[in-house]
Design a protein around this nucleic acid. Structure first.
Lengths: 392, 392
DNA sequence: ACGGAGGCTGAATCCCTTC
DNA sequence: TGAAGGGATTCAGCCTCCG
């Protein structure tokens, strides 16, 4: 039912229909296994380093790896409403030291490198806890970084205590086997996916929740399940149909599910039996690609919102500038952080506007005005100019 | 002058009087060694590692560093001992150049760490060429990463050959001196700057061009001049007015220009004379903001505290008043000493709230509510009224 | 059936001062 | 120096429930 509703909601565009047709045309070849001695469509049990050792050298086209992040979390964390945050406390994410994590990283990357074809490529995802170590080590091993990609989360968890910036992204590294190595990059597919503009190194995608999130008895099966849209883009961009994709940290099989849907072959490694079971079941259920899924991964929720503060930072409105309402009844000074000050009252353009009028809310963009060359213009006019000047 | 203002802002209470005495006792030591021998507003010539060695230990509040991005751009990289690293293409030499870059990075980060105060913080900006090495090394040196920040460029250079994703971002690392170290974060200023939403780890800002870009004879003075908006956000977020900001790779002085505007002190290091000249000229032109514009939204943690008992003592809330949580599940009576009573349970507004909910902690100010003229208002609303009425 | 209110949750290195 | 305790702190999306 979810499928039907989704389909109905999504409109067919020429671009996505074209892409769907092309993928469908190419699918049949993909089904013919290329190498009889590869465990295609299987999840290898046990430690991924040991498991990869059983695979032949230079046999896979892409490795996608979502290794433990080594989060090093402290005590419990509660939301402002008192509820408990369900943290990643699994043993598989615990390491004694940076040195131990580095040794582990070097070991699995070394095997991944051996197993990759000369023209294959590597993807790794991580956060600031681990990604710098992973990046440095893979460079040391001879991989050549092609891009670092930022997954900007449309709906990240907030910073509940107000102690840092909201950790709103994760980083992926895409690397070839060496400086001179060839690699696959489907430039036009990416351009199509991005409304005929070059695909950039920052991708806005929602986190994995709702129906896509695997659950058992109401609780999530895996604490860090990745969204399929992320893997879609990765595979569509840097593999061809029929390619072999290896995921050494298979988890609940997002890589396998997307590979199946896109006509790629897959191999997984996973230690935990419950993850393996959930993954196999899920992959069996996975449907071939339809247009709705494609549309989902095109999600462009990065509305070009501009905060008033950005205009202050970028010099479009200087701190110290006087602003007023249209009739000049109220006047306020813009401060360095984009707040407004009127006597003892201060706050955002919206909050101060509301308080002065005694209203529950106020649109500061249209309420406050600037005097400019004899004219009185709403702040919104400045925002429009800024957007025009900085549009992609 | 800052001193006087500070004094005026602080109200005299027994607690603050005690604090004032303690500060007065500690001031002489604090003032003497640190400020007078710092070359504030100067650009130190020569190699930044040598230059930093001339600065006293634990003397600056922030280091902002925009180090050379890397190797493959050419032979302008020097080893820590000053010897020159040749541009190379062979595999073994590649390792050699990564090692040289690492040694250079370790050397300047070590000096930066020595010069930073225990509660200071470090910012480094880089791209995928160097940032993974920098990040791993600063972790090894004991810095504690607080956030990685993505500067998402609103108007990046396209990838002309269509061989990779458009490289549309750069990465900044923000780190404290250690896991337990304190640091400055102006949470409310950032939240205000971002239209009342928490500031996220992905910042959308335009690249530096137009009038801001320094040019001489029609060509840009520096190849990688950073936009002032970027430094503006960095400094507003993680320093206070009067702080000392050190930039070991000063270039054409974006850090200095923004520091001057925002009322921060600055020190730069720069090898090239033409950059130094352009920077000094530029900084002289920069206009400092006046004091009213410099004010930013204060955190509530720094606000004057009001004990609940004070509201009872002063008659704002009468002993015997019934309070309740928002939904009326819990009810309690206010006693004459400012404690709450529910059956056998009594204690502070926070403690009773926590115990009733079985929670580890509770903010009584927002948990407990009063019925007043048909409306249900949190105790915090009364506190706000009290503060307004008793303000200087 | 539809809309709004309210609940739940997500790779998180998540307080600070005083005694 | 560790324990105690005051009190500061959240955004988007999807779900269920109810009118």
């Amino acid at each position: 039912m979810g499928q039907v509703l989704l389909k109905e909601r999504i409109r067919s565009t020429p671009a996505s229909a074209k892409l769907t047709r092309r993928i469908a045309r190419e699918l049949p070849e993909a089904l013919v296994p290329q190498r009889v001695d590869l465990p295609l469509g299987h999840i290898l049990e046990g430690d991924c380093i040991e498991a990869m050792r059983r695979l032949p050298t230079a046999s896979v086209d892409m490795v996608f790896a979502d290794p433990p992040y080594n989060l090093q979390l402290g005590g419990d964390l509660a939301r402002p409403d008192g509820s408990h945050v369900d943290a990643v406390t699994n043993d598989w994410d615990k390491f004694d030291s940076f040195a131990a994590y580095d040794a582990f990283t070097r070991a699995w990357l070394t095997e991944a490198r051996r197993v990759l074809k000369p023209n294959g490529s590597l993807w790794v995802i991580g956060s600031y806890h681990n990604i710098f170590r992973v990046g440095a080590i893979l460079q040391d091993l001879g991989f050549w970084i092609l891009n670092d990609i930022v997954w900007r989360k449309a709906n990240p968890m907030p910073n509940f205590k107000g102690t840092r910036f909201t950790n709103a992204h994760e980083t992926l590294i895409w690397a070839s086997m060496g400086e001179k190595a060839k690699y696959t990059f489907n430039y036009n597919a990416m351009k199509t996916l991005n409304d005929e503009l070059q695909m950039r190194s920052d991708w806005v995608l929602p986190i994995c929740n709702g129906a896509e999130r695997l659950k058992k008895g109401g609780t999530k099966v895996h604490p860090t399940q990745k969204p399929e849209a992320l893997l879609y883009r990765v595979m569509l961009a840097t593999t061809n149909t029929g390619d072999v994709v290896l995921d050494p940290f298979f988890g609940t099989g997002t890589t396998g599910a997307v590979a199946k849907r896109l006509g790629r072959n897959w191999i997984g490694c996973e230690q935990q039996a419950d993850y393996r079971e959930a993954a196999m079941e899920r992959i069996e259920m996975a449907l071939p690609l339809d247009e709705s899924a494609l549309k989902t991964m095109q999600s462009k929720r990065a509305a070009p919102k501009v905060a008033f503060g950005t205009l202050v930072e970028t010099g479009w409105i200087a701190p110290g500038t006087m602003v007023q309402d249209k009739k000049g009844r109220y006047r306020a000074v813009v401060r360095a952080d984009g707040s407004l000050q009127v006597d003892d009252l201060n706050g955002s353009i919206h909050g101060v506007g509301a308080k002065l009028q005694g209203a529950p809310s106020c649109n500061g963009w249209t309420f406050w005005h600037l005097q400019h060359e004899g004219e009185v213009k709403p702040l919104d006019a400045v925002r429009q100019l800024y957007l025009l000047a900085t549009e992609d």
